[in-house]
Nucleic acid binder design. Structure first.
Lengths: 232, 232
DNA sequence: CGCGGCTTTGATGTTCATCAAGTAAAGTGG
DNA sequence: CCACTTTACTTGATGAACATCAAAGCCGCG
């Protein structure tokens, strides 16, 4: 799954891959690609700072990027995690001209970066392209809202179970994975303190649901995890 | 502000009013308006049931509509409240073909209802129209996410202060207003129990911040409310 | 090698949900 | 229109869930 910086130099494995760009004429495509560049972002690197002007359009080729924001309490909170093939931060890209969230790579990531003004220009004249965006945005909105909705209705055990299932099922498609974020960040994702994140991890370990070796997670009893996520 | 059913029979005071529809040609407009109808919905009436197929497009001319959803705990939760000039439920309209949320009038409401398929057809060919939607959706997403974000970082007093300020500033533009929802529904909006909603209301009354007469709310110390909303 | 951030566990206290019990208001059928 | 039923509203008491505080080990990094 991991892609080298050389591979993505070819547009065939990058931007073309998104079905959205199938609607573009060769001219439109070359126009957008004029100032396109592919970059490798190291784990932990800040990509976009909340409050900065929007002028780039980011497509996540590979890796993981967290969208986060500082609350009134001055604490960081994670809004969502962008996955490969996501347009990072798409949801609020058309609302005002500054970024609503910060974006930081939580795994080494490969991004395809184009001028947002170029995207906008093509959107203005190509309705098929714009309609694809409508769908993408709607799906993204649905996902974010649903996630926040589900998390807020669960107790701590339920939230941890939910987040583990999310990583295993949605992100890694594997019951063995390296948690890409710290315990603290898990807490920032699902509204709980670092201490309690750790405590519940330990509980799950003692209950035989989970094997933990540092960041390495191995889900041993997925059915139980599912039950906890639903009932909790 | 309240609009009679007769007034909205004229499109000039209804759908045309949205700047989005300025981008339409006369033909497109008449196509969309073919099956258009204006309806009056009584307070408390269910407009859309979560899970039903999407085939109508709703524009809220006047009134208030809550978007809500049943959680895994079998309790109702309010996602957001649509205000006049909103396209009700727009955010998830392009994600799948069934409604993700129920919609219920919380005040007597006047809706302009068109065929969603007609809207979709015009969107497919008119990129200006589609781009207007992108902006609308982005704003809506931003608002919902920001609201949930702010609420989840506040204690009970902060949440009640927030919801009161929201009604006063955003919805009624008045420090005197009739709360359109029950105490229970307030709780469903901001994740707290009915008892605690009432308790905090009482506290604010005793503190001289609020005057309460049944549903009638009168904010007496807005500055204090603001402080509580921020610090809480 | 020392410093800061991450991780872990335990003890303590606060916040909030739950339970209980009663009043008020609003809708319903005879 | 009145008795009846249901739903909304309110207050207090109790306990559970969770945040906070404290202390210590660990790891990576300059």
């Amino acid at each position: 799954m991991s892609i080298s910086i050389n591979e993505i130099k070819s547009c065939n494995t990058c931007i073309y891959k998104s079905y959205l760009f199938n609607h573009l004429s060769p001219e439109e495509l070359s126009y957008i690609n004029q100032n396109k560049k592919e970059v490798k972002i190291e784990k932990g690197e800040l990509i976009i700072q909340e409050g900065n002007p929007i002028n780039k359009f980011l497509y996540l080729v590979d890796g993981l990027v967290k969208l986060h924001k500082t609350g009134l309490d001055n604490k960081e909170h994670i809004i969502s995690i962008a996955r490969p093939r996501d347009f990072v931060g798409l949801l609020t890209l058309f609302s005002g001209d500054i970024h609503k969230y910060s974006m930081t790579a939580i795994e080494t990531s490969y991004l395809c970066i184009t001028d947002f003004s170029a995207i906008k220009k093509v959107l203005d004249s190509n309705s098929k392209f714009a309609n694809g965006f409508l769908e993408k945005m709607s799906n993204a909105a649905n996902l974010v809202i649903l996630n926040r909705f589900e998390i807020s209705n669960k107790n701590l055990r339920g939230r941890i179970a939910w987040v583990l299932l999310n990583f295993a099922n949605e992100i890694y498609q594997n019951d063995n994975f390296d948690l890409p974020i710290t315990r603290k960040e898990v807490g920032q994702m699902i509204d709980m303190t670092t201490e309690n994140v750790i405590r519940i991890f330990s509980e799950f370990r003692k209950d035989g649901i989970l094997e933990i070796t540092g960041r390495r997670m191995h889900i041993k009893d997925k059915e139980m995890l599912r039950k906890i996520a639903i009932s909790g």
